[in-house]
């Protein structure tokens, strides 16, 4: 009789214990949010939240311009949030070689790292131009490769990349929310529903 029973459906969760343990380090409690480096530097919670919000917006705008897979933008936002748990917006770490990192630069560097890890390579030139356009809020801005803005952005991104990597402790493998979504849609038996899938992934 037991053999005729339908196979038990596994309740989806984080499928990978190694990844789970790895990510556990980057989960924070509400109290810990009141002790972020920025908070210690007297930046109010509301202000920090606003800056994070703007950084996410920046990432998405650049991603759309470069037609990044949404998963890559998602990874970039995770990097940005993690980075701000260890780095103050006031930039109290001159020994790192770069003093103040502007939130837009943080966002740009996070995206830069994310698309390299995710194998969604974009040309450096295109990426820098997209950053300039979004930063200036002029989507059709013609950015000359010799211009001051172009070089400023390029240098900032390259300089701060290694800082970001070090602060992220090279923990670059992030579970994508789409995987969890997918696991659940299979669990609920709607994995084959194309229309639903498209609307959830967008």
């Amino acid at each position: 009789m037991a053999s005729s029973a339908p196979p038990k459906r596994r309740i989806p969760g984080l499928p990978n214990p190694v990844l789970e343990a790895e990510q556990q380090k980057w989960l924070f409690t509400e109290e810990e949010f009141d002790r972020t480096p920025s908070r210690i530097d007297k930046i109010e919670r509301g202000k920090e939240d606003y800056i994070r919000h703007r950084a996410v917006e920046f990432i998405w705008q650049v991603s759309v311009m470069l037609k990044m897979p949404p998963q890559t933008s998602m990874t970039a936002t995770v990097y940005m949030h993690r980075f701000l748990m260890r780095y103050s917006l006031m930039g109290q770490y001159p020994e790192m070689g770069s003093d103040l990192m502007h939130p837009k630069v943080i966002a740009a560097v996070a995206l830069f790292v994310a698309f390299k890890v995710d194998e969604a390579m974009r040309r450096m030139k295109d990426f820098v131009i997209a950053c300039c356009r979004v930063a200036m809020k002029q989507p059709n801005l013609i950015v000359d490769e010799q211009s001051k803005d172009y070089w400023k952005w390029r240098d900032l991104i390259l300089q701060n990349e290694s800082v970001m990597l070090e602060y992220l402790c090279f923990d670059l493998q992030v579970e994508s929310p789409y995987r969890i979504l997918w696991d659940y849609s299979v669990f609920l038996g709607v994995g084959d529903n194309r229309a639903l899938r498209h609307s959830t992934y967008s």
Partner: peptide
């Protein structure tokens, strides 16, 4: 392109 993508993936 800054830090090579291969090194970043290998490390992580």
């Amino acid at each position: 392109d800054g830090v090579p993508a291969t090194a970043m993936r290998e490390i992580s």
